[in-house]
Simulated scan of single mutants.
Amino acid sequence: MMPLRPYTFGDPHIDKATSEHVRFPMTDGQQVIAGRIGIAVIRARFGGSDPDPDPMTLFLHHRRPIEDATSAKFDRTGAPDNLIEVYAEDFEEP
């Protein structure tokens, strides 16, 4: 399986269906795979001391480790329904 990489023809956005996730496009070279991470996970992992950080700003500042965790999960599980949901436990501990 090829690792996922960012898909440059789409932008990350707040998931309109849930309002509680950031969706972002990635590709395995053949198809576009949707990544999705909960805003609560982004804030808990990357929010620091700000009590209400903007989720898109946090996502954009920490995009690389989020995409790396998504690619690693894709390698482990594939992408049923072309969607990979990233959870806190999908990040390797520093």
Results as ranks from 00 to 15, higher is better:
Thr70Gly: 03
Arg43Ala: 15
Phe74Gln: 01
Val86Ile: 15
Thr77Ala: 09
Glu67Cys: 10
Pro25Met: 08
Asn82Leu: 12
Ile14Leu: 10
Pro55Leu: 02
Leu58Asp: 05
Gly10Arg: 04
Ser49Pro: 00
Phe46Ile: 08
Lys73Val: 07
Phe74Ala: 02
Leu4Pro: 04
Phe9Lys: 04
Glu20Phe: 10
Gly78Lys: 00
Thr8Phe: 09
Thr70Pro: 00
Phe59Leu: 07
His62Pro: 10
Asp54Pro: 04
Ile39Phe: 12
Pro51Glu: 05
Val86Arg: 04
Ile66Tyr: 02
Ser19Thr: 13
Asp68Gln: 02
Arg36Thr: 14
Arg5Ser: 13
Val41Pro: 00
Thr8Val: 13
Thr77Phe: 03
Ala40Met: 06
Phe24Arg: 04
Phe74Glu: 00
Ile33Lys: 00
Thr27Cys: 05
Asp28Ala: 01
Asp54Gln: 03
Phe59Ile: 08
Pro80Ile: 02
Phe74Val: 01
Thr77His: 02
Gly10Pro: 10
Val86Met: 05
Asp52Leu: 02
Gly48Ile: 14
His21Cys: 15
Val32His: 05
Ala88Ile: 13
His13Lys: 14
Gly48Tyr: 08
Leu60Cys: 07
Gln30Thr: 06
Asp52Thr: 03
Ile39Pro: 04
Ala17Arg: 07
Leu58Asn: 07
Arg45Leu: 13
Leu58Val: 12
Asp28Asn: 15
Arg76Gln: 11
Arg43Gln: 14
Arg23Ala: 03
Ile33Cys: 07
Met2Thr: 00
Pro80Gln: 06
His13Gln: 09
Asn82Met: 05
Leu60Arg: 13
Arg63Ala: 12
Thr18Trp: 04
Leu60Ser: 10
Thr18Ile: 08
Ile33Asp: 04
Gly10Cys: 09
Glu67Tyr: 07
Ile37Val: 14
Arg76Val: 11
Arg36Ala: 15
Pro80Met: 04
Arg63Asn: 07
Asp28Leu: 01
Glu89Gly: 03
His13Ile: 03
Val32Gln: 10
Pro51Leu: 12
Arg45Glu: 08
Thr18Leu: 03
His13Glu: 04
Pro53Ile: 05
Pro12Glu: 15
